[in-house]
Amino acid sequence: MLELSFTAADVAYTRFAFSPLWEVVASVWQLKGGVGHDVHAPWLAQARDRLKGYDWRLLHDLVPAHVIPAFLCPPPTAPLPELADELATVRATPDEQVAREVAAIPEIPAVPDTGELAEVIEGYWDRVLAPFWPRVRTLLEADVQYRARRLTTGGASALFADLNPAVTWRDERLFIEHRRVSGRRGLRGKGLLLVPSAFVWPRVFSITVPGWQPTLRYPPRGVGDLWTERHTAPSAALVGVFGASRARLLAELDNPASTTALAARTGLTAGGVSQHLTALKAAGLVSAHRAGRFVLYARSEVAEHLLTPDARKGRPARTAERPFPG
């Protein structure tokens, strides 16, 4: 059991942040059979397929089952960092720190070069996470909004009450059930950094090493539905703005897809789909990501918000759900 004690200053400095780099690390943990991988099974199947032929062993070997070196996943210093910003921190890690942390984990076979490691992470991200990031980030944003309301209306006790079964708030202290971590820690007036993470479900991960803001990574609400494909009929309003074909393509991009796949699903020609996607990409509504021989198109964060239930007033309800496609 890990016990974190809060002062008034710690409560005041408690904040939220996202971490693309941590999602990389946690997703690797899932690919290696982490607890809860059944929730992510649809994504795992696609990720394994897209990683074929890509040498990502350097990253793979740095994520053992139980302990992850801190230099690989430093707590973000900004609320919404880009992956490039976090990788700059990894590249700047002193060699002696990397060697010391790796030496403390017998399962890691060798000390990596951080520059080479950052390049491997970028390739991994482009193949299996970048196309899905707007979808994941939308889930994380919804959780932060919910928890911010809880904190505003009920204080720390309300914030932590339903965070995770492993987390309990009592007497100005936070108790976190860990299998291998125990002891009492103060937050040193830095507060607690809360990082929602899609790929940690159902566990929580914490870091309390000196030099970083104490951090708790936890699964967001609704993660069980993250990879469910929901067929969405575009609203009349979206059709009026974008046209029927482009609105249909946006609705079909619940999950990243290639031009060929979209043509087969919509009945449009591949050339027509390509022209519409080019226009949507220019408008910032879709993004393109190369995965091996294919280019996958995904909705941008702006488009994700346009197609959320709250944004589709007067629209047909979401209908038949089916598992995330292969």
Rank of each mutant, 00 (worst) to 15 (best):
A65G: 06
L21K: 07
K32R: 14
V28Q: 14
L58Y: 01
A65F: 11
V35E: 12
L51S: 10
H37R: 13
P64S: 02
S19H: 03
H40D: 15
S27L: 06
W56T: 11
D38A: 15
L58A: 11
V35M: 09
P20V: 15
E23P: 07
F16C: 01
R50C: 10
T14E: 03
Y54F: 13
H66D: 01
P64T: 02
S5W: 08
S19V: 06
F6L: 05
P64H: 02
H37E: 15
F16S: 00
F16G: 00
W29M: 07
L21H: 02
L62T: 04
F18C: 03
V28R: 11
A47C: 07
S5N: 04
A8W: 05
D10N: 06
Q46S: 08
V24T: 06
L44G: 09
T7D: 12
G33R: 00
K32M: 11
V35K: 15
V63R: 00
Y13F: 14
K32D: 14
A9T: 14
A12L: 09
R48D: 03
T14D: 03
L21P: 02
P42G: 10
V63Q: 00
E23T: 03
Q46K: 08
A9N: 06
H37S: 13
E23V: 05
R57K: 11
G33C: 08
R57Y: 04
P64G: 02
A9I: 12
L59P: 13
S5R: 13
S27R: 07
F18A: 06
A41K: 08
T7Q: 06
V25S: 03
T7R: 03
K52F: 06
F16N: 00
V35N: 10
P42C: 09
A45Q: 13
V28N: 09
H66R: 13
L31Q: 03
S19C: 05
V28P: 02
W22A: 04
A17H: 12
V28S: 09
A8H: 08
Q46N: 10
